[in-house]
Amino acid sequence: MSPAAVVELTGVTKRFGPDVLGLDDVSLSVAAGEVVVLLGLSGSGKSTLLRHVDGLQMPTSGGVRVLGVDVPTAGGRELRMLRRRIGFVFQQFDLVGSRTVLENVCTGALGRLRGPRLGLPTYPRGLRREALEHLDRVGLADRAFQRADTLSGGQQQRVAVARALMQRPEVPLADEPVASLDPESSAQVMDLLKTISRENSLTVLCSLHQVDLALGWGDRIVGLRTGRTVLDLPTDGLDRDQVMAVYSRVGADASALLTTAG
């Protein structure tokens, strides 16, 4: 294991039931400050891989080490402390629709707080102020007191980014953050993610569907197919066709579809 590695997966295999293989002997080492983009068809194991980094799923076999913590053997508290330092942006935003935008951002600080919280007034004032600043960072401070489900998809995802920022993450993960958004909102969210990761030189793992977005952001591209790593190369000098191969070998139809969609 390289000493500088922030995320280190060694021979990770994840089985769902006897016949379904989510991850098949995946090894991956991510150095500090590196932006790694995961590519692959739906069901290729991108989400599963990301969830293993965060300990939301545990490997059937193999090792997962993140920020010096051995994830599979970490206890409840240790795992919570690790998750606080990670941060996760989901494809479906996963905001609590019936609560205000500001309260949703505040929930990003739950890991630092003791006890359950329900309702904005239950969060300390200083924390609310910090949340408002993060909202301002994603350009939505003016929406602080609206119900989260009254926002558009792109706005909701920006709120989700603000929630992750609230954690002051060291290794943000993003699982197809723009797959549910229209092109314009996608561009906004991607710009936001890029700027934030560059400004704070964060280590990022992000799964995407769009090859062009991946080439434009990542330092390194990792291609997955049926749970196996089929590509792991730096973006520099990588051309589009090489990346498309991740998709094309599965079948001409699928690749045609993705080219038009991407």
């Binding site: 998750r83 989901f90 935003f93 996963d94 019936s98 990003g108």
Partner: peptide, 29 residues
Amino acid sequence: DDGPPTALRATGATRLQQIAGGVLPPVLP
């Protein structure tokens, strides 16, 4: 929807915090 509670879990929230923040709000009505 198990999305919001999972999202809270990913922020490092305890089980009780996940329930108060992500489970109770959608079921209150």
